[in-house]
């Protein structure tokens, strides 16, 4: 089964996938200093290009679309905020 055909059932599934992508793509080491509530911009994990790549990944993987207004740091700066934003979109669809 292709990765992007997996059925997402819960917020923790989303969190796990986002975490795996961030860890793999940005060489981030999640632990006590970097958790799901860490601001990834402030921590230096992602920058402008990383954010753009992350958004492209999230849209493809979870089959969602972000409007420009949603691409603010408040919505997508932490793993928790990403999960909440994606969860709301999936629930609304």
């Amino acid at each position: 089964m292709e990765a992007n055909s997996t059925i997402i059932t819960s917020g923790s599934d989303i969190a796990d996938e986002v975490r795996a992508y961030i860890a793999d793509h940005f060489l981030a080491d999640f632990g006590p200093d970097l958790n799901y509530d860490t601001d990834l911009f402030v921590a230096g994990v992602i920058d402008s290009f990383g954010f753009a790549e992350l958004v492209v990944f999230l849209e493809k993987r979870f089959n969602v679309h972000f409007e420009g207004e949603e691409l603010t740091a408040d919505n997508l700066n932490t793993v928790s905020n990403m999960v909440n934003t994606i969860r709301k979109k999936l629930d609304a669809s």
Partner: peptide, 11 residues
């Protein structure tokens, strides 16, 4: 400031 994630800058 709240749009300084890079995506607007690309546009």
């Amino acid at each position: 400031p709240d749009y300084r994630t890079g995506t607007l800058a690309f546009d």
